[in-house]
Design a protein around this nucleic acid. Structure first.
Lengths: 195, 195
DNA sequence: CGGCGATGTATCGCCGCGATACATCACACT
DNA sequence: AGTGTGATGTATCGCGGCGATACATCGCCG
């Protein structure tokens, strides 16, 4: 969700819409774009919800004819106290909502702001999610293989390999993450995962 | 687009909604799901547009109390003449709309119904699209590498590798496809000489 | 001195998704 | 005999995101 991404970015420094978008591209890259058609409405929604506030940066408008052209200059947004609170809350969530296709990348990109334990749980959740999908594809593939033409088959198998690659990647990440937490010992608190 | 997928599937045999959905999963696999929330409205739209028609399959409803529960039984859809025409038209399109993220998979899954020349052009188009993206990612990555935390960096690099892998896959496909057209000399593209 | 690409804010309609509702039927478990 | 569970089947609703588009300013290069 865009909301989380914006919260995460604004946590580092106040930004205006355009810059926010650049950062999103730089941060999420191939994973997700988030067009202006999503950004601006979301920004408004978040402002109305009280998570962010407009930080009137440039009062040096003046001169020309401000009244004629209406609002000039950039609109800089910054986190409010509630926004920070909300962000912290969202970052603790290691439930299914965090390992969905669309959301995982955002959570991952914000891992440096996330609790190490939560990180591992998200990575593991994401991995099981993908393992489920892998098994699903394998099953239907085995069942329908004969009926499929070569192109569909190739598509299926390519997709399957992509998922497998993804699982491998996650496994590596989990191991590295585990190493980190074992060398920096913390008290392991088992936590139930809500559905 | 769902429309094309439905057209392509119905070209082989008449199907009802549920079965159509199963086929979509089996055909597109990891690539795309297409929920009922898209399917049924699309079906209606297509029917209204005249591409498909309801092929009242089961008249053996009767007995119980048909009037009470309203419409019983499955609604089977089949291609109309216009539908076939429209499909043929869509399958000739090798323009940008065919190599977009969301559409490419559908086009690819329907390759067995597609003209060989169009196939190659779609594959090449898709590849350039991904090469562009790859260069874009490389550029922003080179520009911002220093500013990124390790997680964001890892996400970026993983994404980059995914794109690279995709490009390799497409290159292989293009080569195979080229071999096919040169070893099976169809309706004469005369000037190309094989070494 | 003219145009073009980057910066900047904003809206609109469409598409697809997930959740949800409801109904029937086969089969297994108890 | 009763129960429940999973597959088959049709359908709707709200919402989040996308691509296209509009419009305005600024700085730089030719």
């Amino acid at each position: 969700m865009l909301e989380l991404a914006v919260l995460g970015l604004l946590h580092e420094s106040p930004l205006h819409g355009y810059e926010l978008r650049q950062r999103l591209k730089a941060t999420l890259g191939t994973f997700r774009a988030f067009s202006y058609g999503s950004l601006y409405p979301t920004l408004r929604r978040m402002r109305d919800a009280g998570w962010i506030a407009e930080d009137e940066g440039d009062a040096e408008v003046v001169a020309g004819a401000p009244a004629l052209t209406g609002r000039r200059g950039k609109v800089v947004y910054k986190l409010t106290a509630e926004g920070k609170e909300h962000l912290a809350e969202l970052l603790t969530d290691a439930g299914p909502s965090a390992w969905e296709d669309e959301t995982f990348g955002v959570h991952f990109a914000l891992f440096s702001q996330t609790d190490p334990e939560v990180r591992v749980r998200i990575l593991e959740g994401r991995r099981s999610r993908l393992e489920e999908r892998r098994e699903g594809v394998r099953a239907t593939l085995a069942r329908t293989r004969a009926r499929l033409d070569s192109y569909t088959l190739q598509l299926q198998e390519h997709g399957l390999e992509s998922v497998e690659r993804e699982v491998r990647w996650l496994t590596e990440l989990i191991e590295t993450e585990r190493l980190k937490t074992t060398t920096t010992p913390r008290k392991a608190v088992p936590h139930s995962v809500r559905p």
